[in-house]
Design a protein around this nucleic acid. Structure first.
Length: 260
DNA sequence: ATGGCTGCAGGATGCAGA
């Protein structure tokens, strides 16, 4: 099965691209981040017409996540389970029955955290701690699950064309990278890096200063797998084509394939 | 990039993104 993640940067502004890619790539599960709309504004019918079930966790103007699935949702929940007071819509999860078992898919949009030195950065780090606590609890279940989405973390220097340009950025701070390693060290597998150890593979290119044309990108959209999911890992593909389309998102889709 | 785009809310421009 194919589980894709794509920071769409406004699903309403991007609807033509989103539908065209979904038709072409035909993922079984598709996780969107930055839908930038309330639930009522999500173009649900257009995706239902392609055969998808749609679950959203929207927010007016900013953030917002959604999971689309060809499989029926056995369960859905919205928000990290520890804090009902967090009004930012950055987390939605679904559970699906596959191949005699179940797989849980978490679609997340981790806080950007810039500028460092404002309250945004500690919010990011705290969110990563909350995600780690959630993960630790899920790992105790010893089930297959996937955390995917826009992590807003550049894990290593090999994940940026110009790492020096990011040293003062929240995406590449030592504390950010440490928190990401801490997450992995709980027992998760970075699916892309399990399949590809080469530099030069990016998922985001800034709109400004010809970043795409210069391939000045960063790899910040990830799939992290529980051991039971990692055992089924086939491959991960970064689908760069959409970045060259008209009115592109600044992120491109990343597709995880599992042997289930 | 000390931000050169872009989307959104709102109905002008400011904020957020990374």
């Amino acid at each position: 099965m194919k589980i894709a993640t794509w920071n769409i940067n406004g699903v309403r502004a991007r609807i033509e691209n989103a539908l065209a890619w979904t038709k072409q790539a035909a993922p079984d599960v598709l996780c969107f981040q930055e839908i930038k709309t309330e639930d009522a504004g999500f173009p649900r019918q257009a995706f239902e017409d392609l055969g998808y079930n749609v679950e959203t966790h929207g927010q007016k103007g900013f953030n917002g996540v959604a999971i689309l699935s060809r499989l029926k949702f056995d369960e859905v929940s919205r928000g990290l389970p520890d804090d009902a007071n967090d009004i930012q819509s950055r987390f939605i999860e679904g559970v699906f029955s596959v191949g005699g078992g179940a797989i849980r898919v978490v679609c997340l949009y981790l806080p950007n955290g810039n500028p460092v030195g404002t309250e945004k950065f500690p919010y990011k780090l705290a969110w990563m701690e909350r995600l780690a606590a959630y993960t630790k609890s899920r790992l105790d279940d010893e089930e297959a699950f996937v955390l995917c989405g826009d992590f807003n973390v550049i894990p290593e220097t090999s994940d940026a064309k110009i790492p020096e340009a990011w040293v003062n950025d929240a995406l590449f701070q030592p504390e950010t990278r440490r928190a990401y390693r801490k997450l992995l060290n709980l027992g998760l597998t970075d699916a892309f890096r399990a399949c590809n150890d080469q530099p030069g593979n990016y998922t985001f290119w800034d709109y400004q200063a010809g970043a795409w044309q210069r391939n000045n990108g960063i790899r910040i959209d990830h799939h992290l797998l529980s051991p039971q999911a990692a055992d089924k890992l086939v491959t991960v593909t970064i689908d760069k084509q959409t970045r060259g389309w008209e009115k592109p998102s600044d992120h491109v889709p990343v597709i995880l394939e599992l042997a289930v």
